[in-house]
């Protein structure tokens, strides 16, 4: 079997952690994976999945637009390529943003049916770790929230996979997965494995 080629969008943020988490998830699943970083449009060719990592959503958004990656990513995902966004990545996948998104002129990719609120827990001193129950996982997942966004409203075919308190922190719709926390910062590879399974389904379609 040819390895699944998964691209981590490497404008800025914790790209290396995602690449390493993909490697570990690949081992645990026994699925060969080639994780690559993507900074140019041509590097998107032939990918079986895309990850939008954590980082600063304002910075990532501005540079996605400046270098034309936003259009290319949107086209691929609409054509079926799975995508996973973590933290800043989840902000960018949203259809609607809050005041901060508006004020900074952050251009959302509008790929998922939810509204997002940036920095919704507060500043860095309010960042935290906590356990989450996640649909599809049989034991809690230890999640790291860093200046994390929340999903304030989800509609249409959005399937809520996890909440923290009453708030939505993980959503799936079609070939798209969004999380307001950072599975790439811990050793637990179950969420990356979940995403790799989505990529595997997609790439094994005729």
């Amino acid at each position: 079997m040819d390895p699944l080629r998964i691209g981590v969008v490497a404008i800025q943020g914790d790209v290396r952690e995602h690449i390493s988490a993909l490697g570990r998830a690949s081992e645990s699943l026994g699925i060969p994976v080639k994780a690559v970083s993507v900074r140019r449009e041509r590097e998107l060719d032939g990918l079986s999945g895309i990850i939008l990592p954590g980082g600063e959503s304002t910075t990532i958004s501005k540079l996605l637009v400046r270098f034309g990656l936003d259009v290319a990513i949107r086209r691929m995902v609409r054509a079926g390529t799975p995508i996973m966004g973590t933290c800043a990545g989840a902000v960018l996948l949203a259809s609607r943003g809050d005041e901060e998104v508006e004020k900074t002129g952050t251009k959302l990719l509008e790929l998922m049916p939810y509204a997002v609120m940036r920095n919704s827990f507060g500043r860095q001193k309010d960042s935290f770790e906590a356990d989450l129950d996640i649909v599809g996982l049989d034991s809690p997942f230890h999640a790291v929230f860093i200046r994390a966004p929340l999903i304030t409203d989800a509609w249409g075919d959005a399937e809520v996979l996890a909440r923290f308190r009453d708030d939505i922190v993980m959503v799936k719709s079609e070939n798209r997965l969004a999380l307001s926390f950072h599975p790439e910062l811990t050793d637990d590879t179950r969420i990356h494995a979940m995403f790799l399974n989505m990529c595997l389904n997609y790439s094994s379609q005729p």
């Binding site: 290396r16 935290f128 860093i146």
Partner: peptide, 26 residues
């Protein structure tokens, strides 16, 4: 489930280093 504030850990090494990681490439 009920929120238990004890469950939230702030200011850990993971949370601190994680913040720094988000600055990478910037």
């Amino acid at each position: 489930r009920e929120l238990n504030l004890e469950d939230m850990k702030h200011g850990t090494e993971l949370v601190k280093r994680g913040f720094a990681s988000m600055q990478k490439g910037g």
